[in-house]
Design a protein around this nucleic acid. Sequence first.
DNA 1: CCGACTACCTGCCCGC
DNA 2: TGCGGGCAGGTAGTCG
Length: 298
Amino acid sequence: MPELPEVETVKRGLQPVMEGAVIDCVNLRRPDLRFPFPSGLGERMAGETITALGRRAKYLLISLSNGRVAVSHLGMSGSWRIENVKDEAGTLAKLYHERAILTVHDHIVIDLTGRDGQSYRVIYNDPRRFGFFFDEASNELPFTKHFAGLGVEPTGNALTADYLAGAFADKSTSLKAALLDQRIIAGLGNIYVCEALWRSGLSPRRAASTLVKKNGKATARLQALTGHIRDVIAEAIEAGGSSLRDHRQADGSLGYFQHNFSAYDQADEPCKRETCDGTIKRIVQNGRSTFYCSTCQR
DNA sequence: CCGACTACCTGCCCGC
DNA sequence: TGCGGGCAGGTAGTCG
């Protein structure tokens, strides 16, 4: 589920509890997710204060007072939730402990003492275990293999039509694949690429280079696409993340962007563009589903 | 170097 | 009702 807007939503949901909190203990309930947890990870985190939560691309960043950062990637099915938020007596946390409310897919449990002095429990759940969790010295993180090659954020000023023109100029690969490439734009996933292309009236099958003029400048259509990428991501964050099926915000409420999908998961539905009488199709590109209208997306 | 493909893992949904 | 097949938000590794 988790594309950039969902990770941003998770971050915002966790911030009130986690920022400024002291980590009492970290329980890694299995040795790995997609990769083995680094040796000593839980011990390094215990006793530290969380100085800030951040996000880069689809990674959640938990900055610690010892100069390290714990990094969480949600993979396809990861989520974070907060338990025992209202613990006024200071005893509820213990009760939850004893009741063993954890399920088999609750892989990471972080017990905290918040700035308000109350006890909190933050839990990472991930049925498919495609997520990552590791730590790194914060000044080293940008140079690690996961971060070194990441492209620009779609939320900031670095995403411009000129930047994309440079990245797409010699790309004969499909627009769909180019937009999913985290080395170009970091944070887009299958849903928002489909949505941005639908808004732009661009076929996901078109070669990326066809949006660049011979002089290397962006075409008007690439300029429009750039704006739609920024818009769709901003709207999804505003809506609290999309969430297919069961994706929930950290406070347990559902994101509702999914009600706004124009193309993604709309196979056989009529195209929602007012001037179009086409039907959304599902095709497979690079082994992944693409949803688009071949009538108005050219 | 790049692009295409596969593997990783569980759960859900559909058709038989 | 049970079972098999296909599919799911992502990314790292491999291969050509």
